[in-house]
Design a protein around this nucleic acid. Structure first.
Lengths: 213, 213, 213, 213
DNA sequence: GATGAATGAGGCTTCATTCAT
DNA sequence: CATGAATGAAGCCTCATTCAT
């Protein structure tokens, strides 16, 4: 005959509660890593009892899936309108806007990115990689359009897209691991220099576009 | 001056045994992640009993430390001679050699990089980040030298160095997560294009170096 | 003198509600076993909310007690009038009637019997055993009367009563566990053969009543 | 970094240890019921740590399976040689021997029987019932042989076999639930009376074999 | 009254670590 | 030295019970 000695009892809307738990999970996963985090810690961080977590998410794994879904939704929403305008008049303006947009998104979501990165290292790789791949594809498509529009020039658009993606993301993660605050403007400026020069149509004195082999 | 005082045994010197366990740990950590891996699995992969692992490494954590030490030793050895020659006559030649060297090193060590990355996400951040930071610093120093030698031009050498580092590392990890084999030559070519153009002294039509603020 | 003071409601009087929950508990306990059943399942089977169960029964344990009470009441009611007539003229007729009565009762209540049986195996033995013992005592008393009336003969009336009881009950349970439908008439016929012959006054060629020791 | 604070350490042969855990499981399952029992209790009763139980049995469920296997093996071994001789010269002698054998077996195994009975009530019914059914079939076959040999007579051998089985088993369980010690000789004597008279070829004054309907 | 979201004690299971052989 | 059986702390998850609405 068990006794449930109550402490507190706060009733909120299911959506809020779900979001709170997800937020708490993000914090704890980020602090301790996915396998380092315990459901008890997540529950405490969310200000709910352990069992409550299981009311909203069937298991620790489901928490991760929900986190991923929310992240992907937000990412796609964030860039979709930018993407839809790529290929129009001011291609370089769109590139700059996209860079700023990505930087801002990453600055806002660096915690989640770290969590997914760890997850990707161990299990169920496909799902996580998928998010990253989608970013790569998006970048590559944008570059391709720039090439076709005669705005830029690059030998291997796909690899370059991946480089851009990981240069930005990697720097972000690195800064996070250090605990450094990211200087947004400096970040954006450097990213623009990287992208603009790398996609430049001009020949470099130190490097020539390879002739078709 | 160390002498090889041990006669070689038909079956396993302690050094070999140690190295075998470390290799096994690398494989298992890479497959399952650090916290996903069990000492039992590592022992089995190394072909020894669980207890034997504890004979050579005090704990699971010590395995990781040993792995890191070995990695750092190899990394430094790998690039030290290249670094020592930076600043000499053919700066761009050195850059290219460094790029190739890094790519080759990463292709050979991608498994360990993944393991450290995961670890970096949870605990004991300092140690791991240190390795990555050293690469960044090395790159930044090399760029600085190129600038001073008048070979290249870039607004933010540190950030650019970090971008290069993470572009390469990130692409590698991404490919690994996908299970894709990395095309070494394509990788090197694209990396060179990225670096050469990004460090180019020429103004781009789409981008101007900011005036000193 | 109780009066029906409540007007009948269109949807569920408390008594009906209570009975419904009890019926649902019977079904679920029977399907899943007592500790295998959850209050949530019982509530759902009864078409009420979990909390409502606690409105009518203080705890899961109380449900069981209530179930037992209802069962005992029904059992006693079922056989009491038969018992009251034992010892009269047609003893064998009463035996047969009792057998049929027991069989019918068991066929109607096999689900509950199973539940109590499980319960008896774990905790709170006294209560459950009590029900079974009462049946044994009833049987034994009846046999004793038959002996005194000269209608039958048996060496150990108590053990024989227990045998009869468990032969019938055990067969029932066994059939239930198999999911077999019980053939009532075949069951009754075989039970009568068992009882009549076992209580027979005649010596068997293969067996002699032991002389008083 | 967990510390395993050791208390004791006793090394035995795996078979002994396995048997000890199985014995402990029998005791605890019997006391608390299968779902009432905890692995912790079983481990303590066996004098081992919780984890040790999982070294020998993959889960609580596997303990049950192992228990069943051991029981079935012992039962079959116990009666097989008796069975193989049924149908020979002294049929009634064999019946008596079988009764004594069953009683002795049950007295030795009553604890297990109770455990299986409970299990049978909730999950995975088939396996347990199978044991019981095999006993029924064995009895029925023996009766059939007796009939063919002209030694006995009964209308429904199968049902009668089941009655015998459950009369004996049920009485045993009942006695166990009471905590009563079973008087083996009294039990055997009453069982013989039950079986001999029930299988008697003589007509009873109170009961006639039904004519073929 | 009725509801079902919330609670948290407690069960099952895993696995890093120890140590008798 | 090497081994692997044994250990027990700690994690995930279930579910009886409570109580705000």
């Amino acid at each position: 005959m068990r006794l449930a000695t109550k402490r507190k009892r706060v009733l909120k809307s299911p959506e809020d509660r779900r979001a709170e738990i997800l937020d708490a999970a993000t914090r704890v996963f980020c602090d301790k890593g996915v396998s380092g985090a315990t459901v008890a810690e997540i529950a405490e961080a969310a200000g709910v009892a352990k069992g409550t977590v299981y009311l909203y998410f069937g298991s620790k794994e489901h928490l991760l899936v929900a986190l991923r879904d929310r992240f992907t939704d937000q990412l796609l929403e964030h860039v979709s309108d930018l993407l839809s305008r790529v290929g129009q008049d001011d291609w370089w303006g769109l590139v700059d806007a996209t860079i700023e947009s990505m930087v801002d998104f990453m600055i806002g979501k660096e915690d989640l990115m770290r969590v997914f990165l760890e997850e990707g290292l161990s299990s169920d790789v496909a799902k996580v990689v998928d998010v990253g791949s989608r970013v790569d594809s998006m970048f590559a498509a944008a570059i391709q359009m720039g090439i076709e529009a005669g705005a830029c020039k690059v030998t291997d658009p796909e690899l370059m897209a991946s480089f851009f993606h990981h240069a930005l993301e990697g720097y972000m993660l690195h800064a996070c691991l250090h605990g450094d605050a990211v200087d947004r403007d400096r970040f954006v400026a450097a990213a623009k220099e990287l992208v603009h020069k790398s996609l430049s149509r001009q020949e470099q004195e130190s490097w020539k576009a390879p002739s078709a082999s």
